[in-house]
Every structure is written in C-alpha cells, then in structure tokens.
Nucleic acid binder design. Structure first.
Lengths: 334, 334
DNA sequence: GCCGCTATGCAAAACGATTTGCATGACGCA
DNA sequence: TGCGTCATGCAAATCGTTTTGCATAGCGGC
C-alpha cells in the first residue's frame, strides 16, 4: 500500500480527517488524549501530509527564488560565480532556517520556461536598469526584493549593498593624502556601478584631482580589463592608484601594471570591491571590501518574507562594508 | 477578480473545462476551430494553469534538492565552494529546462529542519560513508541519486565522477617515464578518495615505485596541507611528483615546495583534480582535470527524474574526464 | 430500420489536504 | 424545564486541475 493519507490515518485513529488536521495544525482544540493517539499513529504509519494537496488548498508555495539576470555563463564564469554563489549559499542557509526552500533559478533564456516556476517570492541579485527579470515577476504578481537597489525601480524593496559607501571607503584608503586615482567599472548599468561612479566623481572633485574613469565590457573579462588598464596606465603616468570594483577586472589591471612595468603597490596602488577568491589569491593579494554578504543575504530573505506576510524575524540591517587591507594597496610608510 | 481558472476560461469559450484541458494537453482530439478559440481567449484573459492543482492531480514533481553533506562553512570555504557551486549552477540550468525547480539545501544542522523541506527527490554531492543525509532521505522515501558513488550504499543510483580514471590520468601524466609520485588525499571517507587511493596503489605497483600517501584533515585547509607536504618533501627528496586531488591542498603543496626550495615544475611536478579558479590562478597554474561537471550535473538531474518516473531525456553518460595541462607539471622536454 | 463508426464534447470523479458551519452531550444556573 | 455555553468532533465544501466514461449527432452501408 502506498503512502497513507489523512483519511487513512483518521480511520485508524477512529476520528475524522478534520480532527487529524486540527491535531497537527493546532487551529482548533483537540482533546490531548486524542491528539496523542493521532500523533503516535502517524509516527508508526509513516504519515506525512502531501504537500501538493496542502499547497493547492492553502495557496502557499513554501519556496522563494534566487535569480540573477546575468547569464550563468557569465555569472558563473570566474568573474561573478563567487559573488553570486556566496549569496546563494548564505541565502539558502537563511531561508532554510525560516523553513522555506531556496530555489536557484538560472537567468531567463526563453522566457516561458519561468512559467513552470512556483515560488512565493524572488530575490533578484543586482538588477540592471530595465531588468527583464523584474518585469517578469512583477507581471506575475510575484513579490520581489532585490539585493542592491534596482535602478529605475525605486518602488521595489531592496537590501542596500552600500556601493557608495564602499567606493568612498576604497577611495579614502587609496588616496591617502594625495595623488590621482583612476576608476574602472563595467558597461552594464547596475546600481553598484552608478553609485560608485557618482561617489568617484564627488571624491575627485573634493580631493582636487582630475577624474579618470573607464568602462569595460563585462563580456571581455580579464583580458579586456587588462587591455583597457594598459592604455590607461600608459596614457596617464601620473596615476597613483586604481579603484577597480569588479574583481576580474582588478586581476586584469594587475596584469596590465606588470606589463607596463609598474610595481604594485609601490608604483601603483590597487583595490577592488568583492573580497572573493580572486582577490585573496592574486599576487599581490588585493585590498578589498567585506560586504558581509551572508548578512546581506539573510536580510534579503527576511525582507522578502516580511513582504509575503510570513512570520519571520524583523529584517535586520546588514553592517556597513569594511575594508580588508592587503598588499596591493600597502602604503609606503607601513 | 483574481486569476482566471480553467472554469472561467471554459465558460468564456462556451465549452466545458474538459475541453479546455484537452485543448491544451492534446490528450484527446479537439476541433481545431474550438481549440483556436480557446487559445486566443486564454491569451487575452491571461489564463495560466495552476501548477499546484495540476501536480496534485498528476503527482508530478515540482522540485528537487541539491545537498552536500559537508557544512557550507567548509563546503563554501575557498576549498569546495567552487566545486559544489559549479554543480549547483549546472544542475539549476538542467533542472530548469526540465521544468522543475532546484532547491539549494544547506547541510543538516539540527536534523528536524529538513522535515519542512518539500521536494520530490534529492541529489547528494559526493556523500561520505554512512552519510546522514542519505539515511534521512531514504527514511522519508524521497528518491535520491548521488554524484559520485556513495560508499557502502551501492544500491543507490549515482552518476560516476570516475575518480579512478581521473587518478589514472593524472598519474600517467605525472609519471611520464619515471620517478616516484606521492599522493595527498583527505581524511573523510568519500568515494573519490577511495578510488584515487586504490588507483594510486595499483599504479605504484605497476610502475615499480614505493607508494607514498598521506591524508590531511580537511578542516586544516591549505595550511595543514602545506605542513604535511613540507614534511613529505623533506623526508623524501626522491619524490619527483605530487598528485593532490583537492585543489586547496594542492595550493598548500605548492607553498610547501616553495618553502623547501623545490621549483615547480622543474624539481617537482604537481597536479590536482578539480579545475577551479584555484588551479587556474595558482602560480604556476596547476595541471588539473576537466570533470565536465556541467554534464555530470545534467546527468544527475535526468537520472533522478527518471527514477521519479518523470518524462525526461534518457540520462546520458557524461564524457570521461580529460586532462587540462598547465605549467605545474610541464615536462622538461616540452 | 438497424448497426457500427467517427467526431465532438460534457458530467463527474478523482487528487489530498484545510476550513467552515453545524451537531451532540454535558453541565451550570435560574 | 428551559436556556446558554463549553468541549469535542464531524460532514461537506473548497482549492483547480486531469481523466474516465458516457452522450449526441451525423453518416454510410446493408
């Protein structure tokens, strides 16, 4: 005989399905004696509620999605796999401890595939301006929160990645009393770039150096960044430091420095944003920023749950980013 | 008014729900005229079938879990994050294209949490001997497949990681006509270690060198490996090569070689198994093996789906592992 | 007139839980 | 006796599909 249903259990216990349901859910009073009998019987019969039936009735899906609009081929390339997957791992832990499942959703190819997806809500990682993923979920009435503000969608709840603060942290450190700092970001219009670029412009004005910012096509990866950095360094011998938020780009910049014969950090100081394996393993290791992604992810989960009206801890604000000092930006004096 | 149901659509089209269902599923003939009317109406009304109801009726699966028994703290540490997450990304893509969701499940802390998990099946990544995760799912009657054979659970379906072949590939390459090769594995009893150790023993016997194998505690990470490798190298000056399947350990071995003054590859040839960022970014870059994890993951998904009786492509055998030659094992002649 | 056949479509029974409204008995109280 | 009120539990409706078995009509052939 296949899996016992609530009716089987009820019959065995000599009560009605209603009573069994109440015994488990606690939504109505059930005689403790009866309940104990039911529970014992459930244990021995191996009864567990059919989640498909339950969900049909209650309408809950019990799961949330984690989505990046960037194709895995790119996102999972050496460049962003770390970032995305670090968030995924942390979000899975957070979601799990709140008794819901985290579904990893690859970015949309043929749009209709997503139709089959049954989730109560979605977390979108660093959406771009006009990100199709956001529209998709909005159209379907699926609750969405983003990690990193969604440019142009200020209505959406989000957990801030504090890219402005991060940039400021890096620039303050790199400037250290003088010089000219260059900036390298990407072509996509994600909020983190926008904030970084704005912070950079403000900082340059304050510090009194001429801003020097380039944008590199993400698809070109490390090589494209190396090429761009090489040009930048050759044309601007006065550059004393480079702020390169994308870690793969920073690796490219490191290579470019080597090629043009600039020692890091002596002749050029370098720092990146995401403190992943790349930053740690680079030679010299790259100064980076601890974004506290685990807490960011947990906050995103809680925020989403709160929006869904689920009972969950009050979404906490993740701590501000903090600098991780490494050799790539060590100062002469230290 | 909320989402239209099949009944709403049927009423609007002037037919019965049955006909609508048949029109979409094609399980019975429906007049093409009628069908066209239904489809057009569905489009304008925004009808989409309720998956919860459908699954309740058909019993179809909605989601599968991906689990590693290793704590995320370890699995997601620099060492294994890459391996696990590369599989996760590929599995998500494969699952998604089969219209089911992939849930990322953190390893069991307090066991009971998993109770809340509602999945139709699970993929377990490189289970250990007596892995509690396997028992857990078996107890619940959740279908399980593993990536990498489960030691002691030969009854479970699995997708082979071909660790024996992999080891052979590495050893053949490292041996290249002579010398003595050392082996460094971990303490856990995963199948990949067992197969590697067996292949190593056989190879040493064949090639006629004295086997020299050490096991390092995974929790010690790169440092522990470096320490072990240093001892190994000092005590065995004759060692010509080191086969170190775990990439973090290989990084440690590289460091040890530097410390004891052995140049890689001139004085010591080194190769690892997993071709992740670690192997690629090492100095010199590490010879590794392409395990074709994307295809392994897809095969695991299909295998699981087949076990669940879902319609899905015939599970394909992933291609055999192939060597990725890098500087760490370059031969003198080449 | 009867049979068999195809084409088309409907009614109703699943699927397995949750939830609403009602029933019954016991009891207290006037 | 009559009335209100707990305490306990059940029957039946509901969620939105899919699927089985039957119904009707039209038509050809004998």
């Amino acid at each position: 005989m296949s899996k016992p249903t609530i009716a089987d259990l009820a019959k065995a216990a000599g009560v009605s399905p209603t009573t069994v349901s109440h015994a488990f859910s606690g939504r109505r009073y059930v005689d403790p004696e009866t309940r104990k009998r039911i529970e014992a019987l459930a244990e021995t019969m191996g009864y567990r509620p059919n989640h498909r039936a339950r969900r049909l009735r209650t309408g809950g899906a019990g799961s949330i999605a984690l989505v990046s609009s960037m194709p895995f081929a790119v996102a999972a390339g050496p460049s962003r796999l770390g970032f995305l997957m670090e968030i995924a791992a942390a979000a899975a832990v957070a979601a799990f401890s709140r008794d819901i499942a985290l579904c990893l959703v690859p970015p949309l190819g043929p749009r209709d595939r997503l139709d089959a997806l049954e989730v109560d809500g979605a977390i979108v990682v660093e959406p771009e301006r006009n990100d199709p993923v956001l529209d998709f979920f909005s159209d379907r009435g699926v609750e969405v929160v983003s990690i990193g503000r969604a440019p142009g969608r200020e209505d959406l709840p989000f957990v801030d990645l504090q890219s402005g603060t991060t940039a400021r942290l890096l620039l303050d450190h790199l400037f250290a009393g003088g010089g000219q700092i260059g900036l390298m970001t990407g072509l996509q219009r994600r909020n983190s770039y926008l904030e970084v670029e704005a912070a950079y412009a403000a900082f340059a004005a304050e510090a009194g150096f001429a801003p020097l910012a380039v944008r590199v096509d993400e698809r070109g990866g490390e090589q494209a960044a190396a090429a761009a950095a090489e040009t930048l360094l050759r044309e601007n011998p006065a550059l004393s430091a480079l702020c390169v938020p994308v870690d793969a780009f920073a690796a490219g910049a490191l290579e470019a420095a080597r090629i043009v014969g600039r020692r890091v950090p002596e002749d050029l100081r370098l720092a990146t944003r995401y403190d992943g394996m790349r930053a740690k393993l680079a030679k010299p290791p790259l100064t980076a920023v601890d974004l506290h992604l685990d807490q960011v992810a947990a906050a995103a989960v809680d925020l989403l749950l709160a929006r869904l009206g689920q009972p969950c801890p009050e979404p906490s604000l993740p701590p501000p980013p903090s600098l991780v000092l490494r050799a790539s930006s060590a100062q002469a004096g230290t």
